[in-house]
Amino acid sequence: MKQRRKERIDRGIKARSDDVFSLNSFREMLYVAVPPLAPVLILLILPLELPSYWQKVLVSTCVFALLAMSWDFLVGVGMVSLGQALFFGVGAYIAGISNKILGLPIWIDIPIATVLGGAICAVLLTPVLRLRGVYFSMVTLVLPLMLERIVEASGAFGGTEGISGITPFPNSYTESYLIVFATLFALFAFRRLVTTDYGLVLKAIKDNDRAVMSVGINIYWMKAQALFISGCVGAFCGAFITHVYGFVGMPSFALDYSILPLSSAVVGGMGTFAGSFLGAFILVPLSEALRGIGGLRIVLYSFFLVFFIVALPEGIFHYIQRKYQQFERWVEVDK
């Protein structure tokens, strides 16, 4: 019986340009340079071109892209967070408190919130690292929702009113370019990090933690470092948004900040960071365009989430990458 099988072969131009020293045509140079340069150029130009409303959309897209990348990074070490809102909220509150109550200037309180927020999240979650499986997800889901309730019930840090009157950014360009640079930096830094020896060890922890432990590496310490890195990125987002809105309150722990990054990373494709980036740039503007449907937003994200995780777990980015690097053809095989 004859059957068909899909065969995938690297495109000639990919094979030729894989070796950096042998780029010998303008076309090959473009082939290598366009994928990394395109997002950089687009992001650098967009703040200048967009009307002010869409500039805000760009800002929140970047924030969600950052959160998605920080989520993706944790998944790469084997930790599935259902609560990026924890990182976001902690960063937001630290920024709000240090700016409004301690009176620190904006350029000092954001770095403080970033580092301190990352550290607090790592310390809060470190005890869970001793257990495999769903515990991490359960605890990360519960913590931000609980903190939200506690702030609401106890009235701490402004309670339901929140803290308002926080110093805004001097102008919208500073705002846009700060987040654009942060996003691009995180994108390339994360992509670089996972290919280093350090990143390799982190990935190995996900694949086979006991094997990593058996060569003398303290996996809890490594995972805590990963939490800190991811926490810093999340906390930075929180601190940044606090200054954009001039306000921090209970919504900082809202489910949106947990779900949208998750959906973005899954839809875009896990494990590549570019996927998270792409996913956020699809989902966030889409939800803005569909603002009319209001509450259906979360339903839509969740639907994408479930659909992609079940039917297309590799995500959009991997698909595009494959098309870019390989061509496919059907070949007949004997069965």
Partner: peptide
């Protein structure tokens, strides 16, 4: 949903969480 991702803890967590959100937020909507 679950049968297709059985054994992949990451996917099981995400899929059930997603289904829950769809149901809850649909009622809200």
């Amino acid at each position: 949903v679950l049968l297709r991702v059985r054994g992949l803890v990451i996917s099981e967590v995400i899929a059930t969480f997603g289904v829950g959100l769809i149901i809850l937020e649909l009622f809200r909507y």
